[in-house]
Design a binder for these strands. Structure first.
Lengths: 209, 209
DNA sequence: GAGAGTACGTACCGTCGGTATGTACCCGAA
DNA sequence: TTCGGGTACATACCGACGGTACGTACTCTC
């Protein structure tokens, strides 16, 4: 049941996260004070500490919102493609787009790891963009009958996810983002083509065990 | 000329960086207070602010030290190999080792970007480990007469550097780091083998322009 | 309509980064 | 020899910020 109090509460909380996301994006985590957030949301610190346990908690709320936006964009773009390689191409483009968003770069990539800590950051990551990359990597690498165990699939996913994150970051700061994105697409495409070559040649992934 | 004053000064500064590196590694940047650093070095804040302009400056000193250690390790390991592919293999192993060091993970990977800011972080990076990865990528990719322009080489470098950083981080937190490192080596080796395949087949890198 | 819980507001505290100022010491010039 | 000046710190203090304690108005339920 939605009572008026609940609606007021929800809107206050939402306004706080709105302002927090904006200020965190513009100034970074440490340079954003709680006073500035509550002033922007036209409330006081009492309201903030009623809804969140502290600064880290409201950051995490903004973090999750930004992550879920990025995830939605990639899912939407990669859906509708049946062929795994086409799906990967479309997902790659969407990923490169998402990672250029200022909020994503500042909150998720830059401040995320240090504010949330490694393990918590990893947790958040693994149920959003990382999971999507994992799905795409799985569908691409298992095409053609490769049998990779879960550990090896996860290793490939980490590698590709790291590659895409770094590449996306460089795209975002490039003076010509469109050209940089095109280069990244070409390079990633070339690497994937190499994997396809091996696949067609019947080369096995070496067993590290 | 080295006077006694200069020696005293150098040792005080060195002690401050020693303690700072340790505390930053253990607790992270924000959770490490300047009071704790100066207490650990048995001096006062006056001494710290005489040698450094502030908290960020002493962090950067620790950052540079950790980076140069990592760089030295990789250079040492990859030296002595003539064949680019062998050089890459050796460099990869050394990189995976370096990136597992707690100081490197916390100070360089986790806190580095948010504390120094993107551009400053990038500057520091590009004259240390990134430069080495770039050299190796260049020597590997230009073998056999490929002609890639600088932009494309840099794109490949960013991709591999990001891949290796992420992979190294996952190795560090794995419950069996040795096995995880072996998986990463296998996966990277497989990707490079794919590139070799394309190289032998005479496939051109698509021109994104 | 009265008690209880919610959704805040207000006032305050401890910590921390940074600064201003003082001081002991060393070193080169007169 | 001494004496001015610069170096290498120490001491005292400030303002900002994260967090807490407590008060209060409003609302929902019984």
């Amino acid at each position: 049941m939605k009572t008026r109090r609940h609606r007021y509460s929800a809107s206050t909380k939402g306004a706080l996260v709105d302002v927090a996301e904006q200020l965190f994006t513009e100034n970074g985590y440490t340079a954003t004070s709680l006073d500035a957030i509550v002033a922007g949301a036209d409330v006081t610190k009492g309201a903030l500490y009623h809804h969140f346990s502290g600064k880290q908690a409201i950051f995490e709320a903004a973090f999750e919102r930004v992550e879920s936006r990025a995830t939605a964009g990639i899912v939407e773009a990669s859906a509708g493609h049946r062929d795994p390689w086409e799906k990967a191409q479309a997902g790659l483009r969407a990923f490169l787009d998402a990672v250029q968003e200022p909020a994503y770069r500042q909150i998720v990539i830059s401040d995320g790891p240090s504010v949330l800590g490694h393990e918590r950051f990893r947790e958040q990551e693994e149920r959003s963009t990382y999971a999507i990359v994992g799905e795409i990597v799985r569908s691409v690498l298992t095409t053609g009958g490769w049998d990779l165990d879960e550990d090896m699939l996860d290793t490939f996913t980490r590698i590709f996810f790291g590659a895409l994150s770094a590449a996306g970051g460089s795209v975002a700061v490039d003076e010509d983002p469109a050209a940089a994105a095109a280069r990244v697409e070409a390079a990633i495409g070339f690497i994937m083509a190499g994997l396809q070559q091996l696949l067609e040649a019947g080369v096995e992934v070496p067993d590290p065990a």
